[in-house]
């Protein structure tokens, strides 16, 4: 069995949940588990991660690593790979992970598998085609860099008797320079407070259809409108309507997804809703996997009819 290096990620000063999920993933693969914690003033967090799944934790602690920087992080990860002798490197598929992980694979001429959600019979399992199909991926060669989908596995909860080791990292060659983090602007529309959300996706087709078809149903139920990312990208609705990993995370009593396929980045924003109805003309759309009720039909037939029936039912 080989050595697995977990690259932990800090959020607001603490090791984030996704890193504990990597610990669980490492156990699933099987091997000697070691970890890396990167940052400035992070010795305490590294100590505690060593006891909670991290194993031997290398600590790259330097003022220049206080904020994410692709070059600095890359140097730290490569130093930890050398120090640990790891053959498998696990990184969470977060904005940090997808920025730095492929660089490590290219630098090492290693296999790279991204956004996996499982490991089964020696292969990594991941989604392709925006959630419509799954793929089993095998790695060849002696090194692999793997990014893991946050939330795919329950986090590691046991204890380990790990310890920490200081890792010297030379960040002087960094070319990318961190400037600042801008927090998300306050939203004009706060979808997190809505009891009912009627969301439309690319299947709605154009902005007028939002006004003619989606909005009336939202009004009939005293709810709010929501949208998937392509709708916002195309400028049909402002960003504050976007539901998903890069929009809002909502948990209404009722979420109705109209013409939304159900890509993972959308699902993470709405799967916690109390009740989900999906209307989609594709019976294989992944949205039906998280919905409680599904209608396989043209939304332009079902949604206006539903709006009319609700008006009638209210009398």
């Amino acid at each position: 069995m080989g050595t697995i290096l977990i690259v932990a990620e800090l959020k607001d000063g603490s090791v984030r949940e996704a890193s504990y999920e990597l610990a669980a993933f490492a156990n699933k693969i099987g091997g000697d588990v070691k970890s890396l914690v990167i940052g400035s003033g992070v010795a305490g967090e590294a100590e505690s991660f060593a006891k909670k799944g991290g194993g031997t934790v290398y600590v790259a602690d330097d003022a220049s690593l206080a904020n994410y920087n692709v070059d600095g992080y890359s140097a730290a990860i490569r130093a930890a790979i050398d120090a640990s002798g790891a053959d498998t490197v696990l990184i969470s598929n977060t904005p940090t992970g997808w920025d730095v992980a492929p660089r490590i694979a290219a630098a090492l001429d290693a296999a790279f598998v991204s956004d996996v959600f499982n490991f089964e019979d020696g292969a990594y399992i991941r989604r392709v085609f925006n959630g419509k199909l799954d793929a089993r991926v095998k790695v060849a060669g002696d090194k692999a860099v793997v990014t893991v989908q946050p939330g795919a596995l329950p986090a590691f909860e046991g204890s380990t008797d790990g310890s920490t080791e200081t890792l010297a990292v030379d960040t002087s060659g960094a070319r990318a320079k961190f400037v600042e983090t801008k927090v998300a602007e306050a939203k004009g529309v706060d979808l997190t407070k809505a009891d009912v959300i009627i969301s439309g996706g690319r299947g709605v087709g154009d902005p007028e259809k939002f006004t003619e078809v989606i909005q009336p149903l939202a009004e009939a139920l005293g709810g709010a409108m929501g949208a998937s990312r392509p709708v916002v990208d195309a400028g049909w609705l402002p960003h504050e309507y976007q539901v998903g990993s890069s929009g809002q995370v909502v948990t209404p009593k009722l979420y109705v997804a109209c013409g939304i396929s159900g890509a993972i980045q959308h699902l993470v924003g709405m799967k916690g809703s109390n009740f989900i109805i999906a209307i989609n003309k594709d019976p294989d759309a992944p949205i039906f996997e998280v919905a409680q009720l599904g209608v396989v039909a043209d939304l332009f037939e079902v949604v206006p009819a539903l709006t009319a029936a609700l008006a009638e039912a209210k009398g």
Partner: peptide
Amino acid sequence: ELEGGALEVVDL
């Protein structure tokens, strides 16, 4: 773009 609509500004 980071999660939830936050942004990280970086100079290259």
